[in-house]
Design a protein around this nucleic acid. Sequence first.
DNA 1: CACCACTGTAACATGGATAGTTACATCAAG
DNA 2: CTTGATGTAACTATCCATGTTACAGTGGTG
Lengths: 146, 146
Amino acid sequence: MQISSRFTVALHIFSCVETFKNERKVTSDFLAGSINTNPVIIRKILGQLKSAGLIDVARGTGGITVTRPLEDITFLDVYRAIEPVEDGNLFRFHEAPNPNCPVGRNIHQLLDKKLAAIQTAMEEEMKKYTLDGLRSGMNELLEKGA
Amino acid sequence: MQISSRFTVALHIFSCVETFKNERKVTSDFLAGSINTNPVIIRKILGQLKSAGLIDVARGTGGITVTRPLEDITFLDVYRAIEPVEDGNLFRFHEAPNPNCPVGRNIHQLLDKKLAAIQTAMEEEMKKYTLDGLRSGMNELLEKGA
DNA sequence: CACCACTGTAACATGGATAGTTACATCAAG
DNA sequence: CTTGATGTAACTATCCATGTTACAGTGGTG
């Protein structure tokens, strides 16, 4: 199971907003062109980022503004905005282990902490990367003329 | 996107094998009863664990043997045996960013290392848990009389 | 005001994966 | 050869990701 491409698309969007904000209005159509997908896909993702309070989207006129300083938005913020994991658990559990089996009635307690620790390790690493780092990294690549 | 329940089912299987190996023959039917699913589901997962070299399954007579010392099998080994992520990447990338856009042609290079680091953080944490830890944890729970 | 470019969203199609189920060939031991 | 087990094919149902068309709503500008 892979994490959906919506996450990397969202990061692509933020990168475009920063790169082009002084040159042109960044619309869902323009983003769809850079990402090579459908504008509606973009709008849905923008909706998720908006619901999470990371951006504002101007109706009518179009255009995206990031609501917080870039160094205050981490990959984890974006990930949580995008991935609608209902109960917040990365790992899915088989639903109804047999309570009459000694293993069945203890397996949850046995695994829960370990699985949570694994998920936390991933999320802590995600916190290390910010949109500001993304911006400066892209700038470096562009200055190198790529 | 959640990681499929096959992973926790596999851990459940190992836990059962250790708990019951001196009491009874552990068959796919018995496991299906403890996990509360269909024996064929179990057999498919056993097939994956077998392909990965973690267990042997006796045809005809039935029964499961773990091929390595329990302390040498980590959650990561089980995870990799179970999750058929073709290219090994946890994160899925949008496939065809526009090479005519400066962001589109650099986004891969910009993100790849960071995404790999996040995945590695998760996998390193997975390495910390072994089947032997699982066994002793279950023993403790059972001795406490749960 | 009317236009126009843009967003928000519904509705639908499609493909792929998960999970479940039945059925049956195959195998090994007593 | 009977028995109890595995291996696997075939099929189903369901869900999710992604893509697409269509259209109503919005807001600035001529």
